[in-house]
Nucleic acid binder design. Structure first.
Length: 349
DNA sequence: AAGGCGGGGCC
DNA sequence: GGCCCAGCCTT
């Protein structure tokens, strides 16, 4: 049995039951694909359910405020996905009369949709013969054919796309695309793949050459930088605090945070106290300052390691950017802030 | 071509 | 600690 037939047969036996596999509705498929970008099924599944429940159609999503969409996305990461999702929903409703584009060439024009996502939607919803290439596909193909072209190079992207396009089942592109991804996720895993019980082990070139552990080849990313984040958790006598919206580029765009002092090195309480004396948010009032966490909370992002302190500052009154603490749970915040809010007992206020 | 962009899970 | 995950966008 050849590669394509074997993969599809394996899938028919081993596929997981997942909600987006029960539909060809382009809105739901699109939603699931955006959620699953760089995200494992287990992590994305509850978010998919929540979005379908709160926004059953693209019209519901288009009508929502961006802040609500970000709130529902909170904790999933890569928030540009949520911003683009919302912008694209509005675009389809307002400019395309609510009609989801139905070809790869049209779909890929949508904001937040690249080659992978366009191929997934076009094949699953509209039966177009266009092969998906995601992390799973890179791994399966690089191993089966023993290809060492770096997968995160432009040459690699072209090469693997062309190979997948050759292998795709022209009569059932949707099934093949989902099958090869599922195969990568459950059989040809990154670590310790179960090659002994693999239906492709007879002709897998990397296996015969003992190259499984070396493939796929990936150009290494730069190491994460360390930063020191000092969040100022103001609490006023009348139950207010300060949350600011992160504007511009950079992490957590359009999410909210406590006022932040970012430093190259860690900052002492004494030095922070001096800095605060001249802080306009305090307008020369007396204040008390205590560090909430006993040691810095290390929040690891792909490209930054954030050494974080939460400083509690009680003060009589606040004037700028204040919110009522009783409403704090309605703002979209990065999970680093969200975890703090959850663990810190604001109820006494 | 390279770097930015999250958070969780595994080893 | 490092690596990976149903990638995309900007520079």
């Amino acid at each position: 049995m050849n590669f394509t037939k074997t993969i599809i047969h394996w899938y028919s036996i081993n596929k997981r039951s997942l909600p987006w596999r029960e539909t060809q509705n382009p809105y739901k498929i699109w939603l699931s694909e955006i959620i699953l970008q760089q995200t494992q099924v287990k992590q994305g599944l509850p978010y998919y359910e929540a979005f379908v429940s709160k926004y059953p159609t693209i019209y519901n999503l288009a009508k929502a405020p961006e802040s609500d969409v970000l709130k529902l996305w909170q904790g999933l990461g890569y928030y540009s996905r949520a911003r683009n999702l919302h912008a694209t929903a509005k675009h389809i409703v307002n400019e395309l009369q609510g009609e989801f584009p139905n070809t790869y060439n049209q779909i890929i024009k949508l904001k937040g949709v690249g080659d992978y996502t366009a191929s997934a939607i076009a094949s699953i919803c509209f039966n177009e013969v266009t092969a998906v290439v995601d992390g799973n596909v890179y791994r399966v193909l690089s191993r089966y054919f023993n290809i060492d072209t770096p997968i995160n190079s432009s040459q690699g992207a072209k090469e693997f796309k062309a190979l997948a396009q050759e292998l795709i089942d022209k009569k059932q592109p949707a099934t093949f695309n989902q099958a090869i991804m599922e195969f990568g996720a459950k059989q040809c895993t990154p670590k310790n793949p179960d090659c002994t019980n693999c239906p492709l082990n007879e002709n897998c070139l990397a296996l015969s050459k003992q190259n499984i552990d070396q493939l796929p080849v990936k150009i290494k990313a730069a190491k994460a930088q360390k930063k020191h984040f000092n969040f100022l958790v103001f609490i006023s006598d009348d139950g207010k605090t300060i949350l600011e919206k992160r504007e511009g580029k950079g992490i957590w765009q359009n999410l909210y945070q406590f006022p932040l002092i970012e430093t190259e090195k860690s900052i002492s309480e004494k030095s922070l106290r001096n800095t605060l004396k001249n802080n306009s948010l305090l307008s020369n009032q007396k204040f008390s300052l205590t560090l909430y966490n006993s040691k810095p909370i290390i929040h690891k992002l792909s490209h930054q390691h954030l050494y974080t302190n939460f400083w509690i500052i009680t003060v009589k009154t606040l004037n700028t950017n204040t919110i009522n603490i009783s409403n704090i749970h309605t703002y979209p915040v990065p999970i680093l802030i969200g975890n703090f809010i959850e663990s810190f007992n604001f109820d006494f206020v």
